[in-house]
Design a protein around this nucleic acid. Structure first.
Lengths: 180, 180
DNA sequence: GGTTCAGCTTGACAGTGTAAAGATCACGTT
DNA sequence: AACGTGATCTTTACACTGTCAAGCTGAACC
């Protein structure tokens, strides 16, 4: 993860990893069952931190459903900005090389955080995945585009927070209002 | 681009590219000034097709502002599904290796399409980038997450269209209603 | 005391991007 | 007409990568 943070996705190498750990060049490959396994293990740890960041951001504000949802989204963006290479790695697993989606993995746990934040807005008889997809698409799209340096404003390096709040305002009318 | 479509991002190699073209292994490197240049050139051509796909989808429906915006978004997703590896390549350029954003490049032209579709919803004195960011984040997030196989429904390989329409319904209340 | 096995090392191999040097050839200039 | 020039390509070489096979520990276990 240090290699990833220092030199971007290209810097994460089995051999460099071995050198930093002070072992032979083939040791990491044996441990993690190849480069794919190493990246998968790193992604899993990343999802743990990801979840912590979102939970912390949600706990920081008032505990109304809307504020919690806003907090989770803020934590989502905060993690992406703090660990850009790790974020790319975590969501860079293409559909081909998807790990077996076991229920208790960090991947699913991070999604649980988003799911719980969305739950108050799900109407009776409504599919929770509908609102979750709306929220997830919006926040993930913003984070991805911001990270890739494509949004106009980050030429001036101005705070992304204002634009982020504007975009997230789309969620103000979400679902049936849960009295908050 | 054929290599990309056949074998994913990993299959795009200077040497394989040279072999398919029937030239020596170093010829493509000279032409495109290294692997980064080749990928950049491919991305530019990708953005051209990207724009065409969006324009065609917008032209297919009725010509009201709302229908055109919906069409552009549908074209956005259609392109991502049809050329997943190319789509990843185009948006995979990290903030570090961003090409010089000249105004007349295909990259900007593709954004112009989205901008024009959003224009009718921008209120007087309002920053167009605000609504553009909302639309872009939403559709890009959905496309990215769908491509990575992370959305629940694509386990059943059901049509993503229904879920996509649900997500895009967030845009129904966008901006000041332009009499359509 | 013998076996097993995980952790690691060593050595090798194919594949990759990149750089330097030279070959060929069309083209323009004097 | 002769010369230079530059683009296009080839050849050769090098460093780096992931992966595999073989072998070496050393502790645990029956």
């Amino acid at each position: 993860m240090a290699l990833l943070a220092e030199g971007g996705p290209e810097a994460l190498t089995l051999r460099r990893c071995a050198a930093r750990a002070g072992v032979s060049h083939a040791a990491p490959a044996h441990h993690f069952d190849g480069l794919a396994g190493l990246r998968q293990a790193i992604a899993m740890e990343g999802f743990r931190i990801f979840r912590e960041t979102m939970e912390a951001a949600a706990a920081a504000g008032p505990q109304t459903p809307r504020a919690r949802l806003r907090g989770v989204c803020a934590g989502y963006l905060e993690f992406a900005i703090r660990h850009p290479a790790l974020f790319d790695l975590m969501f860079g697993f293409s559909a081909s090389e998807l790990p077996p989606p076991r229920k208790d993995e960090q991947n699913s746990l991070a999604y649980q955080t988003l799911r719980q934040a969305c739950a108050p807005f799900v109407g009776p008889g409504q599919d929770p995945a509908a609102i979750e997809s709306q929220v997830w698409s919006l926040v993930h799209g913003f984070a991805t585009l911001y990270l890739s340096g494509r949004m106009r404003f980050n030429a001036g390096s101005a705070a992304p927070r204002a634009r982020f709040d504007e975009v997230m305002a789309l969620l103000d009318r979400i679902g049936t209002d849960p009295a908050a």
